[in-house]
Design a protein around this nucleic acid. Structure first.
Lengths: 333, 333
DNA sequence: ATGGCATAGTAAACCGGTTTAGTTTTGTTT
DNA sequence: AAACAAAACTAAACCGGTTTACTATGCCAT
């Protein structure tokens, strides 16, 4: 790889001149421009991003942190974020952390060394104190989809509470009267807000959700299966089950199949996320759709706004949700 | 951020000493070690990866290029690659290209500037001349899942041909005699080898696949739907359809539902990939599983082997495939 | 001719590490 | 006590850009 000094020598000028010309900091007379351009062509000069970053302190790359890129919902958001970042002249590097705080901290530390200009972080656990302090110290982080309590920075969340309400309303409209919830870990915003919304809507109709009708666990398919198992053997078996994420539904469906429990005939379920191909499941899944395109794109826009200092760190954008009716809820009567 | 010079000054030694100590190039007497460690703690020194990379020419980061991170099969491979890379002391940055050659070229160019030590590339189109030359020039690329003809570098592919054979054999064992194929773009190795294997197995049993029973298009769900449409109206309607990727099946199932065509009763299908949750589709999809964990991990291992110069650029690793029997193939008779 | 002012271009320091070649200190032999 | 080797540590160059502060040149008006 040719360096800028080689180009400068070939063209007969100083490295500083070439650098400033290339960055548009200076105007040169046409003959000089030509000589520099020719030298660049001749040597195949491409510039060294690393050196530029070291010198300028900017990387023009954003990091996107996710716990599990193989969960389609997260992958969709990442994909949308990449699109928006590219459109705005940034590269997006996606990092998979498998819910490992150390990995998350490591990626955040890339900020300090300016290997990344900003980090959009989607995390998934409740032990977030260390993360919170590190994020607050650094003003280049956007929090996406799941909260990191105590951290200062712009946030992008779905209308979780509204999602919970929509689910409850749909169950009610279909004549259900006994409810259960399967959720991810208590304490997560996606869990608490969605459950709150669900309860709110029930209470509007004079109904309630006993706390023993909430089954929680890690956000894994297994939890969904365990939940079905749990409620199947419970004294008052619910007819309607709201899951705070579609992957819980996947486990639930799998377990229901194994237990010969028919969905929706024996048990109705509503999920959350609307993962790709939720329409092709057996049964097609009724679920609360979060707009992945908006979540991804908005997080990038907030990130760049933040980098330019145009955005207040305390903003929280809420992305609307919609109920997608399919066939996992039985009409009671 | 504290620099190594500040640490050195605080500790009362030279920057070179600190650097060499930290890299284990030198042994220091305990008292010196202690002073340096104390200075590091006191200043919160973390090192600057950018500067280290510029100086050493190594980034300890691998790039993973995929056309569409939101396709679960690709996401699974990326996830496995990340795991293996982390295990071996490397970071993995995933890049989404949406099949845009310019983006792919851009990421490959990060190699020249040593922003990435190596790139694992999973591409998906047939116009690959420019890519091929750039890859050949650079010896830090591993080609994964889909070939880039003409490029020199280690490759990791599934046993595509064997997959095609397994699909055909399964159809034959279930009594099918009229076949069709829906495929991605002709020219891709995943298309050609799988079709070849399928034909081979048929010919062993004295059967053949007329060329007008192959429907090709981009690797999108839409193509799957169009394929179903196409064969539904064809004079000799096939009973068995082999799709060279599961996402084609997703489109096919969707279209079949819309056209009130029952799978597997009216049409049997076998897919390829075994995307996550293929077991929960309606119907549960019989498909050829490619081991995503092996594909991802092996590509990383080959990459590191290549970086160390231990691996011949012409090696091609083949990852075994297995047929996963579910319920999308009807037993005829 | 002279002053004033763009315009064109550059030297040198800097970003924050690593590495080479070498110097100084310490310890062991004889 | 001198000679020598080993151990401990460092100066300075380097990676490849950017940026600041400055000089040299040309042009015009007076």
């Amino acid at each position: 790889m040719a360096s800028i000094r080689e180009v400068a020598e070939e063209a007969g000028f100083a490295p500083a001149t070439v650098s400033r010309y290339l960055n548009g900091h200076i105007k040169l007379k046409p003959s000089t421009q030509k000589k520099i351009e020719d030298a660049i062509d001749k040597l195949g000069y491409r510039g060294n991003g690393l050196a530029r970053r070291l010198a300028t302190g900017k990387s023009e790359t954003l990091g996107f942190v996710t716990t599990d890129i193989s969960y389609p919902f997260f992958a969709s958001i990442a994909s949308a974020a990449e699109r928006e970042a590219t459109r705005l002249g940034y590269a997006l590097a996606v990092f998979n952390t498998r819910n490992d705080i150390m990995r998350e901290m490591q990626i955040l530390s890339y900020l300090q060394t300016r290997q990344l200009d900003g980090v959009i972080i989607m995390t998934n656990h409740t032990q977030t104190e260390d993360l919170a302090t590190q994020i607050t110290n650094d003003s280049h982080v956007v929090i996406l989809d799941e909260d990191i309590p105590g951290a200062v920075g712009p946030r992008v969340f779905a209308e979780n509470r509204q999602g919970g309400r929509l689910a409850a309303r749909h169950f009610l409209e279909n004549g259900h009267r006994s409810f259960a919830v399967i959720s991810g870990p208590r304490g997560l915003i996606s869990v608490e807000e969605r459950i709150e919304g669900f309860k709110e809507e029930l209470s509007v109709h004079g109904l309630s959700l006993p706390s023993d009708m909430i089954f929680s666990g890690p956000y894994s398919e297994e939890t969904g299966g365990l939940g079905v198992d749990h409620f199947r053997n419970s004294p008052d078996r619910p007819t309607a089950m709201f899951a705070t994420a579609d992957n819980l539904c996947l486990g639930a469906i799998r377990e229901a199949n194994a237990a010969n429990l028919k969905i929706p005939d024996d048990l109705s379920i509503i999920g959350f996320d609307d993962i790709p191909n939720a329409d092709l499941l057996a049964p097609p899944l009724t679920t609360i759709r979060q707009g992945t395109a908006e979540l991804g794109a908005e997080s990038v826009r907030l990130m760049l706004g933040r980098l330019r200092g145009e955005i207040d760190p305390s903003v929280t954008t809420r992305i609307p949700v919609t109920l997608i009716e399919r066939q996992s809820v039985r009409r009671m009567d």
